[in-house]
Nucleic acid binder design. Structure first.
Length: 479
RNA sequence: GCUCCGAUAGUGUAGCACGGCCAAUCAUGCAGGACUCUCACUCCUGCGACUGGGGUUCGAAUCCCCAUCGGAGCACCA
């Protein structure tokens, strides 16, 4: 990451300012990680500010406030301070009143399309030149709720002839008569500030020194600059990043996901197919892997389209040495071995780390993956991993004969024989939930000891053991 | 329609503010190999890029202009 532009001995203050209308996603993680990382480097203050001033269109979700704190903490980015915009309404009202008194804000009663016409024509609307006294009256009525929704809006005067139409007299407050989801706020307010106003006031009040935000908010600085100019404040230093698109998830919106969950398309916010942090956590993705992934990506203004493979590669390196190995046979088919007796197999829990062994009681019947079985022909020789060698004698039913235990036939000779894994006939049933589907099969009994751990199902991938009640439920992380 | 950004290998990045040290960094990916009782890990080797065109200059990935492509804003969303 590039160093920040620091003026003399200033103490860095940065923030992450989400609307808690759903849980944090991988996209949120970028803001959380980058901001908190800078704060760590400069020993500054990291503030979490909930921009929850829209009770209607992007209505906050009560549970999501805690989810944000939870997920930030998990990511190693616990905020030093938490602020809820909905708690600070009086402050916004005070500043709004000051601006009106300065003659820099006015109550506008134009219908939105009508105002757009004036704006596009670089003409002031009829309300722009009302007297301060009249505007103060109107504002008072806005705040107490005398006007209905969409009747009045408070605008900040910028430059109505500004060459960029996006800058001309932007809205600062509008009327929303839907109660706020927070019970302590409820229907206490009807005049709600819009982002550019609320953010401008807060960034100053909280003493923000640096702001990093999306490119889509690039115009905010120009708009908010007027407010800063009127009050004589200094604008924080800003950096922008482009849009981030994850190959595996494509474009998604919090409201879209919410809708899909309500429709039953997903099991919940932590469904393994979802790009939420809680889903990634459930799958066994390490927060450090996400941090590294985001920091490596940096803060370019270029729009990025990245594959999760990079994140998975980071994660794999982090968990490979600590993940115990187990056999899980998906889509199992039974095989019977002749010429041997039940025995006990004790494969190592890890191929290179000294982590002890697991114990599997093996009958003369067991399971192998149908995927492996389909490739077999009579006479094929293969090795059952950590057990013994066999030769196929029948395909339906699948049968084989024991041909010895020695590893020599496996290693020696020009062509090594294939090694496949297997599962005991009395194993436990396992269901793996993965982004690309559900896998049902049989696994070793000892997997039940690994609740909440990430293990590697050999020849399948890394999974986090989520529950072990009647059957084992595992969440797939990656290959 | 008006306005604002951006463009380095398949992907993501470094380099660009102070042109030469860049026949361009690192990671991931892919290919091949070593190791291995996993299609994991580790290690080795290889592949692969400065969007195009002008200009300035002894010299341009770096500066200027144009074009092309991509993104964003002009909400009573954040």
């Amino acid at each position: 990451m590039k160093p920040l532009d620091i003026t003399d001995g200033e103490k860095v203050v940065m923030r992450f300012a989400p609307n808690p209308n759903g849980p944090p996603t991988l996209g949120s993680a970028r803001g959380i990680v980058i901001n908190s990382e800078y704060v760590k480097r400069y020993d500054g203050t990291f503030i979490m500010r909930f921009d929850d001033t829209d009770p209607q269109t992007k209505r906050p979700m009560l549970e999501a406030y805690d989810w944000y704190i939870e997920d930030c903490t998990w990511l190693g980015a616990a905020p030093d301070k938490v602020v809820l915009a909905s708690d600070r309404m009086q402050m916004y009202y005070d500043y709004a009143k000051k601006l009106i008194e300065m003659g820099q804000a006015y109550a506008c009663f134009c219908e939105s399309g009508e105002f757009k016409k004036y704006k596009d024509a670089k003409e002031p609307c009829p309300h722009r030149n009302e007297s301060i006294g009249v505007n103060l009256e109107h504002w008072k009525k806005m705040v107490v709720g005398e006007y209905g929704e969409k009747v009045a809006v408070l605008r900040i005067k910028t430059d109505i002839k500004h060459k960029d139409p996006a800058i001309r007299d932007f809205g600062a407050f509008r009327i929303v008569k839907v109660p706020h989801p927070r019970p302590e706020i409820g229907n206490k307010y009807v005049a709600w500030p819009l982002l550019d106003f609320e953010g401008a006031i807060e960034d100053h009040e909280l003493g923000m020194t640096h702001i990093i935000r999306g490119k889509d908010l690039m115009d905010s600085e120009k708009r908010q600059g007027y407010i800063y100019k009127y009050f004589g404040w200094n604008y924080p230093k800003t950096t922008h990043w482009g849009r981030i698109k994850i190959h595996e998830f494509g474009k998604f919106s919090t409201s879209g996901l919410r809708h899909a969950i309500e429709e039953g398309e997903y099991s919940g916010w932590d469904d393994p197919r979802l790009p939420t942090l809680r889903a990634l956590r459930r799958r066994g993705i390490k927060p450090e892997a996400i941090r590294k992934f985001m920091i490596e990506m940096g803060v370019g203004e270029t729009d990025v389209s990245i594959s999760l493979d990079t994140l998975y590669a980071e994660n794999r390196k982090m968990i490979d040495s600590i993940a115990n190995r187990y056999f899980f046979v998906w889509d199992p088919v039974e095989i019977e071995i002749h010429g041997t007796k039940p025995r006990t197999s004790t494969p190592p829990l890890h191929p290179t780390e000294d982590r002890g062994h697991r114990t599997i009681e093996v009958d003369t019947k067991m399971y192998v993956c149908s995927e492996d079985a389909e490739k077999l022909e009579i006479g094929d020789k293969l090795r059952l991993k950590d057990l013994y060698n066999i030769e196929i004698t029948s395909l339906a039913p699948l049968q084989a004969k024991h041909t010895g235990d020695s590893m020599e036939v496996v290693n020696k000779g020009e062509k090594r024989i294939r090694i496949i894994h297997w599962a005991p006939i009395n194993g436990v049933s396992v269901k793996v939930l993965a982004p690309h589907g559900e896998f049902k099969g049989i696994g070793e009994k000892q997997i039940a000891n690994e609740i909440d751990n990430t293990v590697q199902f050999e020849r399948f991938g890394f999974c986090r053991i989520d529950s072990v009640d009647h059957e084992i439920i595992a969440y797939f992380a990656h290959k």
